[in-house]
Amino acid sequence: MKNVVLKFLAFLLVFFPLYSKTSAEKIWNSLSEIEKISQIFLVNVEGNEIFHPVEFLEDGTAVVPGGIILFSYNIGNSKNQLKDYIFSINSFYKKNKSPLPFIAVDQEGGEVNRLKKITSHLPSEKKISENYTLKEAKSIYSNQAIQMKELGITMNLAPVAEAEIESNKVFLGTRTFGGVPNSVAYSMICVRAYEENGIASVAKHFPGNANSDPHTGSVEITLSPSEVFKSFIFPFALVLKSNPSCVLVSHAKINSLDENPACMSSFWIKEILQSYLGFKGLVLSDDVFMGALSDSPPEQVAANAIISGVDVIMLSEKKFLSVAKSLLNLAANDKFFANRLCAAEKKVLDFKLEKGIIKIEEN
């Protein structure tokens, strides 16, 4: 009888977690329109000692994003300095009665290593796969996650889960674990290490990249549909089985399947990532100020991304209010867009509740 009860309780926890959808709904209902839409932005901030907002409404109310991404100049020179800075961020949000933000960082290892002054040595993904067993790799990433958690970081924009092929190897360099077998095995290990130690992982950059750099210009993948499936979709399908909290969508165009950049493509996000691959977590855009999207203003990119299924818009700039107001104006005249915007806002709040970043009693 005892075993039956335990199995029933386990069933309830799987299908009815300790937080509920109504919790996110209650928090969402308590927020102003600008506080609601702020949840969908992942934005960089100023300083590395004391947090100060940079945007305000006409009445002087500070406007702060739902997520904060820390760059190298935000990190400071010591563990204590970074901890104090993140503490100041959370303190400001609490004082402002805003839902606490998720704190993200790009900590891939190797060349992309924001915490190299703060945490233990983290080799590039390529060096990890070439020099360490899967067990050793999990220990390395788990150690990083523990250190990140202690600092107050809640999300890592890693791993780069793209497999290396001829048409992307120049751009990815050492940022990938290698070909399909290594990429899948080590990406899954990396995701589990972070997730099991309280850090939300972000598998990127779905569906893939080419050898051109999206920071400076457009990216076009010229592979056939069958090659895309073999080199990009199949590996990501396996990596998603390790349950990353988030997937970051690239700006690449794959003209053999869809003419739009992936981050503005309902085909790639709704049809492939969510319906075909079954991903239910947060969908992040890559930075909308990258050169790959320079033909369109960020307001238009953000709107098209939200319509296509993106939940979180990343902006490397420190200001997002003009984009937020543009989206609110669009929502006021477009019921479909308004509903999609609400769904994204609530999904971010669900994520924060699930990760323990916010609690229902705090709001």
Score class of each variant (00 low, 15 high):
6 L>I: 14
16 F>C: 06
17 P>K: 01
19 Y>A: 01
22 T>P: 01
24 A>K: 07
32 S>A: 04
33 E>L: 12
34 I>K: 11
35 E>F: 04
36 K>S: 09
39 Q>W: 13
40 I>K: 00
40 I>T: 02
41 F>A: 06
52 H>K: 14
64 V>D: 09
70 L>Q: 13
74 N>T: 13
83 K>H: 01
85 Y>F: 15
86 I>M: 07
88 S>W: 11
88 S>I: 04
91 S>P: 00
95 K>L: 12
96 N>T: 02
108 E>F: 02
111 E>P: 02
126 K>P: 00
144 Q>L: 14
146 I>R: 15
161 A>R: 03
164 E>F: 03
166 E>W: 00
167 S>R: 09
189 I>S: 15
196 E>K: 14
196 E>D: 15
197 N>R: 06
198 G>K: 05
202 V>S: 14
209 N>M: 08
214 P>Q: 09
224 S>N: 01
225 P>R: 06
225 P>E: 10
226 S>M: 09
228 V>L: 10
239 V>E: 11
245 S>R: 13
255 N>D: 14
256 S>I: 11
257 L>K: 10
260 N>L: 15
260 N>C: 11
268 W>E: 06
269 I>D: 09
289 F>T: 01
297 P>M: 01
299 E>Q: 12
302 A>Y: 05
320 F>H: 02
326 S>V: 00
335 K>Q: 12
339 N>G: 11
343 A>F: 07
345 E>L: 01
347 K>D: 07
351 F>K: 08
354 E>A: 12
356 G>R: 01
